[in-house]
């Protein structure tokens, strides 16, 4: 099913999405990848607050290439989500409702997705030039010294993603590949 959804996510939208839904996101999301996740975890361990309130928000696992003059961002496709698995359950338990990335997630992430009625979206890996066209503005809001790995707030319009893991824990990577398998 094709759906247009606004971000940050409402609890109802997050819980109602189903694996396989094709979704266009409009609103604001935040980027964070390996180094930013490590810092956020260190902040939590030290009892500090995070650089942004994760409640209801969507994190995009992405580190862009530099923007040319007059553009908000360079190439901007997803990176492999599993490298963030170690940090993800804690963020979901704090109220994070969505993630955009590519690739499989760990059982612990799946449990946390179910527990918190959250959702994991896939964006098409290797389509960074195309995806950059749905990003209308970008602003570094934390960890600027990390360069491409800094946390950015993105204003997106009809950003195309596919629901890969829904609030019930259904994993499209498993079900879809299985239905096209033609091995003896």
């Amino acid at each position: 099913m094709d759906r247009k959804i606004s971000v940050p996510l409402s609890a109802e939208d997050a819980a109602s999405l189903r694996a396989g839904d094709y979704v266009y996101l409009t609103g604001t999301i935040y980027t964070a990848r390996d180094a930013a996740h490590k810092r956020m975890q260190e902040a939590l361990d030290a009892g500090h607050s995070l650089p942004f309130d994760v409640r209801g928000n969507v994190i995009y696992y992405m580190g862009p290439s530099p923007a040319r003059e007059g553009r908000p961002i360079g190439s901007a496709g997803p990176t492999t989500a599993s490298r963030m698995d170690k940090y993800t359950p804690a963020l979901l338990d704090l109220g994070l409702l969505g993630m955009v990335g590519k690739g499989r997630r760990s059982p612990a992430v799946r449990e946390a997705v179910i527990r918190n009625h959250a959702v994991y979206f896939a964006a098409v890996g290797g389509a960074g030039a195309l995806l950059s066209k749905s990003i209308k503005a970008a602003e570094v809001i934390a960890y600027e010294d990390l360069g491409t790995e800094a946390i950015r707030k993105l204003w997106v319009e009809d950003f195309p993603v596919i629901v890969c893991m829904d609030a019930q824990g259904t994993d499209l990577y498993e079900t879809a590949a299985e239905s096209f398998r033609r091995e003896e």
């Binding site: 290439s65 040319r68 190439s75 496709g77 098409v124 290797g126 389509a127 030039a129 066209k133 491409t148």
Partner: peptide, 17 residues
Amino acid sequence: QNLEIASKDRIPICQDT
């Protein structure tokens, strides 16, 4: 489509260059 945009606008095909 991504390949077309990348070569026309000189944006990297993928952000991981």
